[in-house]
Structure formats: C-alpha cells, structure tokens
Amino acid sequence: MQLVIDGIPCTAESGETILQVARRNRIDIPTLCHHDALEGVGACRLCVVAVRAHAEAVDAQVVASCMYAVKDGLQVDTATPEVRRLRQTVLDLLAARCPDAPEIQALRERMGGDAIDYAPAVDGSKCIMCYRCVRACEAIGCNAIAAVNRGPQKEIAPPFFDATQRCIGCGTCAAICPTGHIAVTETPQYREIWSQRFAMAQCAGCGAPFMTEATREHLAGLGKLKPDYFTHCAACRQRDAAARFVRVGT
C-alpha cells in the first residue's frame, strides 16, 4: 500500500507501523520506549505524529506512530507544530520525573522547543517507565520483573521487591535501559542487581568471571546448548578451538 509521510510517498506492507515505514525511509521520529525487537507498548508517547485519512482530509488525529498500523492513502506529518509541542510536553514531564537522567535532558535540548519546567519529583529516579527491561526479561523467558502498583506510584520491580528465583542476574534489563536506571554492581565473585546477589561463573581456562551461575543454568535449561559450552569464557573457547583446529589440520 501507499502512504505519504512528510510529503514523501512511501510503500508499506499491511501490518507495518508508521514508525517502521518512516525509519525505513530515513524519516526521523524520536522514540524512548520503542525497541525493534520488543512488542510495542505506546507508553512514552514521544513518537506521536499527526495523521489524516487521505490527502483531502482536513481533520488530523494525533497517534503514536509505534503502534499505529499503516493504512492505504494515509497522510502522516511527523513534525507539525502541534506534534512538536506534544513531544516537548512529554520530555518536560519526563525531565521533571527524572532530573538526573542526562539522556532525557539531552533529548529535551535537542527538541529546542518552548520548554516548561514542571515541579521536579521529590525522589526522582532515572526510570522513565518505558518497559524495555520488562519486555526484554519476558523475551528471555524469565519474567522476573514487572510494573507494580499503579499511576504515579508505578515502578518496575521483582515480585515482593525481593530476591526471586526467576531472576538469573543476566543484566539484560540494565543493558537495555535507556537511562541507566537499573543499578548493577560487578565484582569478580558476584554481580548484584535488583538487590539480589548472583555468584559469577569463573572461566575454567582463565579464571575470569564471564556470566552468572544462574544465567549458565538458565541457558543450559533451554536445552538448546550443550552444558560443556559453559565452562569457559568466549576468549578461552576461541583459544581452545584454535588448538583443535591446529591438531585437526596437521
């Protein structure tokens, strides 16, 4: 099907979102909660765009481009004054919530609009509630964290705000967090995340810690891999493979 984004005719498949089509055509739409690999949640609303049903339509509707499935003949504007203002408001609100998140402040400056300073959160965290960590954890199959409580009190936490068997300490949540909210403490012996301590597996070759014991068990438990993969770090495995290579080759 055909649609027009910012005056540029674009071709799209049924089921694609406006965001997908726009990015494929190198049209920039800022996002925070969106991640290509994760199911859309439409939480941050930074990616709003104005849409009209067809070229002659007068009434524009503001929609989240990450969730809105394209329709034939759709007219999309990604940077009308109204859209810019809404994005500015979203960032202003997040900046008030997360005064210590430089990523948000930087984005806000980049927008360069008419910013409003809202009352800063008293106990401001860096969490913008984008659910990336929750969705990534779900993708891995752990489901160790979720958004608990509701409204302004909503936060991401493991069940009972406590240690849980479901968490394997893999650190994916921290790695995928856009603002660095999730704290991770690393030592050669353990990794601490969500206030839970995980023993590190030491490489049988070089002794370096390379993943948590729980992650090792989780990956083995998936049944996709042989358990003996997990005794050595990647570098040592490559070294061993080189040795085998030489022996086979000679």
Binding site: N143, A146, P159, T164, R166
Partner: peptide, 11 residues
C-alpha cells in the same frame, strides 16, 4: 508467574 500475581495484587 509470581511476578504477574504480585503485579496484579499491587495494581
């Protein structure tokens, strides 16, 4: 999951 049950219980 306990995670979801706790989420529901707090929501």
């Amino acid at each position: 999951t306990e995670t979801r049950a706790f989420q529901i219980a707090t929501f």
